[in-house]
Design a protein around this nucleic acid. Structure first.
Lengths: 200, 200
DNA sequence: TGATTGAGTAGACAGTGTCTACGAGATGCC
DNA sequence: GGCATCTCGTAGACACTGTCTACTCAATCA
């Protein structure tokens, strides 16, 4: 009976995590369409059938790679928010938004992979473990800044706004529309809209 | 094999537009991944090499199909906005936003196709012909509602917000986050955020 | 020692997009 | 009319994809 526990950390030994490493590297360097099952196997130095022992399907391997992206994003968010003692929640939210956009625009291939609907809908991604806690913190911060409003609603709208900006900016539509190459004014506009105007 | 094709002449338009018709129908009914070059040719009753005469590449056929989506979206937007005599710009924007979301959520396959970056980045789509005029109208309306702000910036942020809501709502993330199945409160929150609070 | 099992190999299969050679029907030209 | 040309679609090849299955081969175990 296999102990379907994934061998946590030893990345140097197991093929499983080596495949994920190769995938993360590949998507970062060449974009999401390069994440072919056979190409990943090739770069990991194994035959194209080898991944099947650890990832029964291509989608599951892609999901494991994308999960790395969510972990990285969550980590960045945690760092950006900090402990909140030095600055107020509004500044924390600004840092969070900026971190989100910087991640999305700095890792476009990974971000695209993370939000592929067929990955999201497949259930292999385990979003509840990675994304929902992050959203919970967002709701919490929004609640502090706007105690008058329905925090979940505003947080949802804000998250959608950040996501939309990341996506549209990512392929250049918004630069054209707003006539600038710096997303900072747009980010400020987004934050002002949902959180109320205030000098950061 | 009897070349007993369609009675033909069902559309005076020729194979080119028949391929697009089939594609629109297919993406509406079965989603974007079903838009295989060979499947479209199959359903159009021609061999898999036939489309090549009109669309040198698969991407160009997909772009032509997506352009239909943009035309439909622009049409809906025009209808939703109306002439603006009866209602104010704020109500027009509300109708525009609602129409946008209804289109995106009611035609998920087409919407997904329309915003696949690998299509958008190729110049085949002619976005400037369909999307930019629409955005121009958005900027105009926003300028009327919020004469104090940079209308292009606010319009860009609003557009991104609608796009983000459409996307996240489309695959269920926001229902989970906001705890409801009706996007109307979320839409109102988005409009209030960017345009200022006001009973519609 | 011999059987068993885990891990990776290698080949087949159906499907894909692209490319190329070919054919049949209409059109144009002298 | 006869003949060449041009249009438009066919059909097969090619390299690639993800999945499936039979197989080797070393390590482990009783």
């Amino acid at each position: 009976m296999p102990s379907d526990q994934q061998p946590a950390h030893e990345s140097d030994s197991g093929l499983r995590s080596r495949l994920i490493d190769v995938g993360v590297d590949l998507v970062t360097r060449e974009g999401a369409p390069a994440l072919t099952l056979r190409e990943i196997a090739r770069r990991a130095g194994v035959s194209h059938g080898a991944p099947r022992r650890y990832f029964p399907t291509h989608l599951e391997l892609l999901s494991a790679i994308a999960r790395r992206g969510f972990e990285e994003l969550a980590h960045r968010a945690t760092v950006a928010v900090g402990d909140g003692k030095a600055v107020g929640p509004r500044a924390q939210l600004a840092a969070l938004g900026r971190g989100y956009l910087e991640f999305a625009l700095g890792n476009r291939g990974m971000y695209e992979l993370m939000f592929r609907h067929d990955l999201l809908e497949s259930g292999h991604l385990g979003l509840r473990d990675t994304s929902l806690p992050l959203f919970g913190r967002l709701v919490d911060l929004v609640g502090q800044v706007r105690p008058d409003a329905d925090a979940r609603l505003v947080a949802g709208a804000l998250w959608a706004n950040l996501h939309g900006v990341a996506q549209l900016w990512g392929w250049g539509s918004l630069q054209l529309a707003t006539g600038t190459d710096d997303f900072e004014p747009l980010l400020r506009s987004v934050l002002d809209a949902h959180l109320g105007q205030e000098g950061e």
